[in-house]
Amino acid sequence: MREIKELLVQKINELLDNGTVDRVAGWKAGEFCYDAAPAVFTKENIDELLYNGFCGANQSKFLVNAATTENRILALLKPCDTYSYNQLVKEHRVDPSRVYALGIPCTGMVDVNKIKALGITGITGIEEDGENLKIATIYGDASCKKCDVLLERCMVCKGKNHVAGDEMLIPDEEAPETPSCADRMAEVARLEAMTEEERFNFWREQLSKCIRCNACRNACPACTCRTCVFDNAKSGLAAKVNNTDFEENMFHIIRAFHVAGRCTDCGECSRVCPQNIPLHLLNRKFIKDINEFYGEFQAGADTTTKGPLTSFTKEDCEPSIVMERGE
């Protein structure tokens, strides 16, 4: 990752100097080294740019507001971010002529909570080490297996290929790969196999943890409405209190529905949720159903194909297919 960072800085400086772009959307360290947050840089503060295993945040959504000026902005896109970027371009939320998209390689982003859960604390840095990660801490160096600490979405990485970009930092064929650690639909299938009552209890327990902070919605690159249904105080859907009613369920069903067929499974919602609710399991259920009912579909794979909910065929299955499925 260190060599990549050097290459990246070199490239960014080149693009800033030759006037291709005047700003860069990247990551900046926060209070701690693992608090990497999206930030916009110019020539003056570009040396604060960070790119390491903590830079999970997807830059593409920020372009909705940031890519509106005459001068182009440089977007650093990891392979999976390019799917979100395509989707935003397809929906005319981002104007690609105002962006210079640089595809950057990624070897998997980590979930710092998983590292802490292994008893590794006082983290000061992170370094690639093949299948493992070397973690520098104030108590000395520690090491752990990558598959144990990757973000949920990186465990089921979409691969090293970028699907969009004006330029690639290094060609995809030469880029390093993220190890695949899990089966994407395994957890959805496990839930489907449960009884109705078990499923209800599972989701009741998960969703009642929701504090309606809206972080999942705000970070989601598919949720880009200027005014959201949940922002309407009169809708009766905007309560903040965590109560025993149906409201969180409704919020989550509707949110997942609004992004169905558009969600690229980028995993931002689960990553940002402070309550650790496995929101990707809702989105993946829609993805699984769409694939089964209407044929394989990957949102953001290109900028032209019609989405499954904005198209149809006359031979589509009837909703009763849900009833006919065995318990």
Binding site: F257, K285, F286, I290, F293, Y294, D316
Partner: peptide, 18 residues
């Protein structure tokens, strides 16, 4: 036709939520 797709997915989601 659009409604049919929508409802199919919604009903399946409700089922998934128990």
């Amino acid at each position: 036709y659009y409604a049919r797709r929508r409802m199919t997915l919604l009903f399946s989601m409700l089922d998934y939520l128990g």
